[in-house]
Amino acid sequence: SEEEEEEWRRAKERGEEIIILGILWKPNDEEAERRIKEALRRV
């Protein structure tokens, strides 16, 4: 969703871990980033 995407962007800017759509994303975690982008597209 729009607000999840916004939340994720803010976490990326701050360089902090975030759990979004049930996926743990850490800074520079390209695999998780790809999965999150896929999940955001499906929503």
Rank of each mutant, 00 (worst) to 15 (best):
E30D: 13
R42Y: 11
E7R: 15
E38L: 04
A39G: 04
I20D: 00
E3R: 14
L24D: 01
P27Y: 03
L21N: 03
K12H: 12
G22L: 09
G22Y: 07
V43W: 13
E7V: 13
I19N: 05
A39F: 06
I23W: 00
R14G: 04
G22K: 01
I18E: 02
A32N: 02
R10L: 10
R41F: 09
E4R: 12
R34K: 11
I36S: 00
L21Q: 08
P27E: 06
V43M: 14
K37P: 00
I36V: 09
R9A: 09
E30G: 06
K12Q: 12
N28H: 09
R35Y: 04
N28I: 01
E2Y: 15
K12N: 06
I20K: 01
G15Q: 08
L21H: 07
L24S: 05
I20E: 00
W8N: 02
E3I: 13
I18Y: 09
I36A: 01
E5N: 10
I18H: 02
E6S: 08
R42W: 11
E38D: 09
I36N: 00
E30A: 12
G15C: 15
R42Q: 14
E33V: 04
I23N: 00
R10A: 12
A11N: 04
E5Y: 14
K37N: 13
I23P: 00
I36H: 02
R10D: 08
R10W: 08
K26E: 05
K26H: 04
W25A: 00
E17G: 06
N28L: 09
R34V: 09
I18F: 12
E6K: 10
I19M: 10
R9K: 10
S1L: 15
R35P: 00
E13P: 01
E17R: 07
E16Y: 10
L24Q: 05
E33D: 09
R34L: 11
W8I: 06
E17V: 12
E4H: 15
E2P: 12
D29K: 01
P27M: 02
A11L: 09
R14Q: 08
E33H: 04
I19G: 01
R35G: 05
R9S: 08
W25T: 00
A11G: 03
R41L: 13
E6H: 06
W25F: 04
L24H: 12
E6V: 08
E33I: 05
E2A: 13
K26N: 05
L40P: 00
A32D: 01
A39D: 01
E30N: 09
R9G: 04
L21K: 06
E6D: 11
R41W: 09
I23E: 01
E30H: 12
E6A: 10
W25H: 01
E13H: 06
R9Q: 12
K37G: 07
E7T: 10
W8F: 14
N28V: 03
L24T: 07
W25I: 01
E33W: 09
E3Q: 13
A39M: 09
I18M: 05
K37D: 12
